[in-house]
Amino acid sequence: MEQRIKFTETGKNALATLYPVGKYLKQTTLDQQLLHLIYYRVSQINGCAFCLDMHAKDLRAGGETEQRLYVLDAWREAPFYSDKERAALAWAEALTKLNSSLVPDAVYKEAAEHFTEKEMVDLTLAVTTINTYNRFNIAFGAPVGTYKVGQFA
């Protein structure tokens, strides 16, 4: 897809409103590598190539294995993820897909076993934020493959 809007020019002020959210999320008790895993999975669901490229690079820079990245879209069948990661992935998928008016009770209960109430709120904020970034990138054709690790730190 051809880039429709150059974010660094036209969209920078709108996207800049999201930057404090990212800064906030970096200061939470949530593991940053887990957040990148969630960002990667949500971007898979939404088909956001720019975010997939970015978060794959960030995950690899953080020590993530190729094997876990390759099978992330089949995490339920793969033995490579912890119970906490599985709970976070299920929560992220339920919030991204919105198949009904509420996240299923079982998904909530599983996540609540691994995360505090504040962490649940923070995890939800992280999922909704990556969904927003995905939609901007998909709508306007972000330049896939240009991201460098730490570029938006």
Rank of each mutant, 00 (worst) to 15 (best):
D31Y: 10
F50R: 01
G22Q: 14
V144E: 00
F80C: 09
K26T: 12
Q27D: 13
E9Q: 14
P104Y: 00
A56H: 10
S101M: 13
G150Q: 07
A87S: 14
G22H: 15
F115H: 13
V42L: 07
S101H: 15
L69F: 05
E64D: 09
G145P: 07
P104H: 04
T132I: 08
S82L: 09
K84N: 01
E110N: 15
R60W: 07
E64T: 07
A78P: 05
P20E: 04
I45W: 01
L30I: 10
R135E: 08
G145S: 05
A139S: 15
K148F: 00
V149T: 07
D83F: 02
E110L: 15
H36M: 09
E117Q: 06
T116H: 07
A56T: 13
K148D: 02
T129R: 12
N137D: 05
K26A: 12
S100K: 03
A74Q: 14
N134T: 05
L102M: 13
H55N: 07
M54T: 04
K97H: 08
G47Q: 07
A92E: 04
Q3D: 12
T146C: 05
D53H: 08
A112F: 00
V71D: 03
L37Y: 10
L34K: 08
A153K: 14
E85V: 10
N46F: 06
H114K: 09
R60K: 13
V127M: 12
R60A: 14
V107H: 02
V71A: 04
P143C: 06
I38C: 06
E64Q: 13
M1L: 09
F136M: 11
T29C: 03
M1D: 14
K6V: 11
G22K: 14
V42F: 06
R60V: 11
G141N: 01
W91Y: 11
D58F: 03
A90V: 02
T17V: 15
C48A: 06
L25E: 02
L123D: 01
R60F: 12
E117A: 09
A112M: 02
L25T: 08
D31H: 08
E85C: 10
L52H: 02
S82N: 09
A78L: 03
S82I: 05
G63Q: 08
Q3N: 08
A74M: 04
F80V: 10
T124E: 07
E77P: 01
L15V: 11
K118W: 02
E110V: 04
N13Q: 14
V144I: 06
A49S: 14
A87Y: 10
S100G: 15
K148M: 06
A106L: 12
S100L: 02
L30R: 09
P143V: 01
V144S: 00
I138M: 00
E66S: 08
L59D: 04
V107A: 03
A61M: 09
R86I: 10
K57L: 06
A106E: 14
E9A: 11
T124D: 08
Q27I: 05
A90M: 11
Q32H: 13
